[in-house]
């Protein structure tokens, strides 16, 4: 019998695993799958609806209208001199939506994809990544709505005299990346944990709602600090507050910008993303036994 020496195995399936066991070559090999998942998500969501993709526009618009009515007209939260409250809210909601959809849609990755994950192997991380990408397209459409209203307010009304995009807009793509990483990271952590401890799924539903109120979506951070100084650290150190404040600073020129804030968001989002990746990676190995 000939024994093969120095065997060159392609890969090994075993229980031992490294902390981060990501095979980037493999993920790259499956890039078509990612795109097909994105395509599936996009084309199937609005099948058999009359308004179709118009829903992407309707949701942020109506929310902004309601927010403006309640928080600005009724409760009288100031949005800054020369900044229409509607535009202020739309900016907050557009950016918040991207984060929250990324978070919510990835937080049930394992449960939602049980049927597929239980039958076929592919790098599991493809699934949450595809969610991030398809949400990016939705975000793009909603951004168009925002830009549309921005143009309307600046050129056709005299209400928006205080709004000017700043040079910081150059950092906009980075900001989107941080939002995505934050949503993805948190989503992956939650999805890995929900897999075994189902309690968390209840938390996600109302947790996201509560988090929105703590993320300066419908009020400026400065106003909160002025009114409730003893709780303001809660809002201030919430990375999403920084993201939304930065988003409004870049596009509308309201609030103040500090490199510290930007750096803080960058560090926190990358950190959360890495933790998410590790937890997700550990879970995907045997999730089918615990789901």
């Amino acid at each position: 019998m000939s024994i093969q020496k120095n065997e060159d195995w392609l890969y090994t399936i075993s229980s031992k695993n490294k902390l981060i066991d990501l095979n980037f070559k493999e993920i790259w090999y499956y890039r078509d799958l990612l795109l097909l998942f994105v395509k599936r998500d996009i084309i199937t969501v609005y099948k058999q609806t009359i308004l179709g993709p118009l829903w992407y526009f309707i949701q942020p618009l109506f929310t902004s209208v309601i927010f403006t009515l309640i928080f600005n007209n009724l409760a009288g939260i100031p949005t800054g001199e020369g900044v229409p409250s509607f535009l202020f809210n739309l900016a907050g909601i557009t950016s918040w939506n991207y984060f929250s959809t990324c978070f919510v849609d990835t937080s049930d990755t394992f449960k939602k994809n049980q049927a597929i994950f239980g039958k076929v192997y592919f790098p599991r991380v493809i699934t949450p990544l595809s969610v991030i990408v398809s949400n990016l397209l939705k975000f793009g459409i909603q951004l168009l709505v925002f830009v549309g209203f921005y143009i309307y307010f600046v050129f056709f009304t005299s209400k928006a005299y205080g709004t000017t995009p700043t040079m910081a807009l150059l950092g906009f793509p980075l900001l989107i990346l941080f939002m995505a990483l934050l949503g993805l990271g948190l989503g992956m952590i939650i999805s890995s944990l929900t897999n075994k401890y189902r309690d968390l799924k209840f938390l996600v539903g109302f947790g996201v709602q509560l988090l929105m109120y703590g993320s300066a979506v419908m009020y400026p951070l400065s106003y909160f600090e002025e009114k409730l100084p003893e709780y303001s650290w809660l809002v201030k150190y919430n990375p999403m507050t920084a993201v939304i404040e930065l988003f409004r600073y870049m596009t509308l020129g309201v609030g103040d910008f500090s490199m510290f804030e930007f750096g803080y968001v960058a560090v926190v989002s990358v950190l959360i993303f890495l933790i998410g990746l590790i937890v997700f990676n550990k879970t995907e190995k045997s999730f089918i036994d615990t789901v």
């Binding site: 060159d8 090994t12 075993s14």
Partner: peptide, 20 residues
């Protein structure tokens, strides 16, 4: 399931020279 990497084994290992 173990061969197709849907779940991982508790002990032992599988070595392969090709894509499964």
């Amino acid at each position: 399931k173990i061969l197709s990497r849907v779940t991982s084994p508790t002990n032992g290992e599988i070595k392969t020279k090709g894509r499964i």
